[in-house]
Design a binder for these strands. Structure first.
Length: 178
DNA sequence: AGCAAGATCGGT
DNA sequence: CCGATCTTGCTG
């Protein structure tokens, strides 16, 4: 049985939501087709002091969305080529989001968005069927049975001694179900 | 107005 | 390791 995750799921502590997202399914509707991909790696960006997070620069045109409602899509362009897919977490005015880095078939955040046709047009929209992009749980997959590995976030060496080393990258090592 | 850097990727 | 490629935010 499947269930679409709503605002309440994302309106919790970001580290908690990050772990909970592993084993969930990212669903993308492209034309008439629906693609379902199990999320295998995510990264948390938490609060106004996290130097790895865009939000550490405060409210700007770009970061405003991170200060918004849980479940909102934060999608930005990097390196002149790739779109990064994030979901806003926690309460309003507290900037936090989770970067969806990989799914079973798509390794890496840039590849993921390229293959699922996700770009800036979705920036600021709510995760959900109306935007054609949502996340579902599948009761067959029990998150508690997943082996999860935490490590430092990727590509954030600019974030200083403390923040570049926080163990906010979460990935599935293996699972006893599926 | 100009500039440096970037939550990446694929090829050497 | 290196280049591709372009938006963003900061400086002046």
């Amino acid at each position: 049985m499947r269930k679409v995750l709503g605002k309440a799921f994302f309106e919790r502590k970001t580290a908690l939501v990050a772990q909970a997202l592993l084993g969930k399914f990212l669903v993308r509707k492209i034309g008439g087709k629906v693609v379902r991909e199990m999320i295998t790696e995510v990264e948390a960006y938490i609060g106004p002091h996290d130097l790895a997070s865009h939000a550490s620069k405060g409210r700007t045109t770009r970061t405003e969305i991170m200060f918004g409602e849980a479940g909102t899509l934060y999608i930005y362009f990097v390196y002149g080529m790739y779109w990064m897919l994030n979901v806003v977490t926690e309460g309003k005015n507290y900037p936090a989001a989770i970067l969806i880095r990989s799914t079973e078939n798509y390794k890496g955040p840039g590849v993921l968005t390229r293959e699922l046709k996700i770009d800036g047009k979705l920036n600021g929209q709510r995760l959900g069927k109306s935007s054609g992009l949502w996340i579902e749980s599948d009761l067959k997959i029990e998150n508690s049975k997943l082996k999860i590995h935490r490590s430092a976030r990727i590509g954030v060496s600019y974030a200083g001694k403390i923040w570049s080393k926080k163990l906010l990258n979460y990935k599935i090592l293996s699972s006893s179900n599926t």
